[in-house]
């Protein structure tokens, strides 16, 4: 029972981090129909920003979240302006973005690998190796903090989307671009900002990832499939779905890892992707495609 609770709590903490990792991906897909395969490499970029801030000036990775977010958002806005905006009117936009973002991911991966080499890195703040005990349950602080911070950011994002005028405009745009334009929403601007927010979320996730996982530039390939399976389970474009998908799959994969074999835990993501695509292709909370 103790072991079960232990795995459950760790799975939930990790689930929130996964949820943060995919929140930007699902937001960008929801608003712009961009399948952003470059999202995981942007997370790595965020991880590098936090890593170097920690190494060079000793800044705690949790405190460097805003900086990592801003840097990656700026990078994202440049990418958006360069390759996405001018193609937005194309009929096969969504399909095109798969190739465009795949290419972008390769380019950024190449640059990062060239500059930093593919060595395993991890940021090591003091709490990274610490843990607390609640009764007999052992909780590593790194996981606990990253889970808490992720959940705060996700709640912040949800509140912003739900209650602010701009947030409602983002949701309106994701439902119907033309209708949004017709009530006076500058759709191009909303897309640019949403892309920026999505990338900022990737950067923020990167800061957390930098101390709970070890990372290297090419690791994003491994994350793409996992992240896609989370988003597809929840339904592309749905934040609520992505969060639920992330937590459920994270807990299940932790359970499988703990009670069956760690070798099978990654399998959970691919198996669920496979099953969801067969049984309910639009996911649990998916938006109907138009």
């Amino acid at each position: 029972m103790i072991e079960f609770l232990q795995v459950l709590i760790l799975g939930i903490c990790l689930g929130f981090v996964y949820a943060l990792m995919v929140s930007g991906l699902t937001l960008i897909f929801g608003v712009m129909r961009i399948v952003n395969l470059a999202h995981p490499i942007l997370i790595i970029c965020g991880a590098f920003v936090s890593y170097w801030l920690f190494i060079l000036i000793g800044l705690d990775p949790i405190l460097s979240i805003p900086i990592a977010g801003l840097v990656v958002a700026a990078l994202g806005v440049v990418i958006y302006k360069l390759i996405f905006e001018r193609n937005a009117a194309q009929q096969t936009y969504s399909e095109m973005t798969v190739l465009l973002t795949f290419g972008t991911a390769m380019v950024i991966d190449g640059i990062l690998s060239f500059v930093f080499h593919n060595t395993q890195r991890t940021t090591s703040p003091s709490y990274a190796t610490d843990a607390i005990f609640i009764g007999d349950i052992f909780i590593p602080l790194a996981q606990l903090y990253s889970g808490l911070v992720s959940s705060v950011i996700i709640v912040g994002l949800a509140v912003f989307l739900k209650y602010s005028d701009f947030g409602i405009a983002i949701r309106a745009t994701s439902q119907n671009r033309t209708s949004a334009e017709l009530v006076g929403v500058n759709v191009k601007f909303v897309c640019l900002i949403s892309f920026g927010i999505g990338c900022a979320l990737a950067g923020a996730a990167g800061a957390l990832v930098s101390f709970i996982f070890s990372f290297f530039p090419s690791r994003h390939w491994e994350w793409i499939a996992i992240m896609m399976s989370l988003v597809v389970l929840g339904g592309m474009g749905s934040l609520k779905g992505a969060v639920i998908g992330a937590i459920v799959l994270s807990v299940v994969s932790s359970m499988v890892g703990a009670f069956i074999s760690p070798a099978w835990s990654t399998m959970v993501f691919f198996l669920s992707l496979f099953l969801i695509l067969i049984i309910r292709p639009k996911g649990l909370f998916g938006i109907q495609s138009d």
Binding site: D165, I168, A169, R171, A172, N176, S179, V183, G184, V185
Partner: peptide, 19 residues
């Protein structure tokens, strides 16, 4: 129909007044 079907009525009205 020029409404946002997945938004609430209140949110739709807010969008009407967005400009």
């Amino acid at each position: 129909r020029a409404i946002f079907p997945n938004l609430t009525v209140a949110e739709n009205l807010r969008m009407c007044a967005y400009s």
